[in-house]
């Protein structure tokens, strides 16, 4: 293990992919259930959660596949996450009436233990570290 690995999904990257997979799964499951059972209560928030879920899935696959192409995909997805969580987080704090219910990115991902805020930073750090 002395050689530093350049693969996106091995070593620490594997842990990152694992966290991404968990977040993708929980965000997908939750937003689907919310949209199906009470979609009319807070359509904006739940749709936003669904969009976030898709972005997490794309990021997970991008990191896990670890090819030059998937690396670019991961870059785009993870950047979108960071922008999303900062923008929606800010909006939800500035105007609490904007969303009828919490989304994944509301209050900077507080409902998910701020994992949505920390994860894209770690993801970008990992993409930079494994750059060849």
């Amino acid at each position: 293990m002395a050689e530093p690995t350049r693969s996106l999904s091995s070593g620490p990257g594997r842990v990152l992919v694992a966290v991404y997979a968990v977040l993708a799964l929980s965000a997908t499951g939750r937003s689907v259930v919310q949209l199906v059972t009470k979609g009319d209560e807070a359509p904006v928030a739940y749709t936003l959660s669904a969009v976030a879920a898709v972005v997490y899935i794309v990021a997970t696959v991008g990191l896990a596949r670890s090819t030059p192409g998937s690396r670019r995909v991961a870059w785009v997805a993870i950047s979108a996450e960071l922008v999303g969580v900062l923008l929606v987080g800010l909006l939800s704090v500035v105007d609490v009436t904007l969303f009828d219910d919490a989304s994944v990115w509301s209050d900077f991902g507080q409902g998910y233990g701020y994992v949505p805020l920390v994860l894209p930073v770690l993801g970008i750090a990992w993409l930079l570290r494994t750059r060849t």
């Binding site: 293990m1 690995t5 091995s10 070593g11 620490p12 990257g13 594997r14 842990v15 694992a18 966290v19 968990v22």
Partner: peptide, 21 residues
Amino acid sequence: VSIVWGVADKSRWGTGVVVIG
């Protein structure tokens, strides 16, 4: 899932996946 994934990584980080699980 975390054990299968953790075993597949032949570095200390395999156990990190189990921690996440």
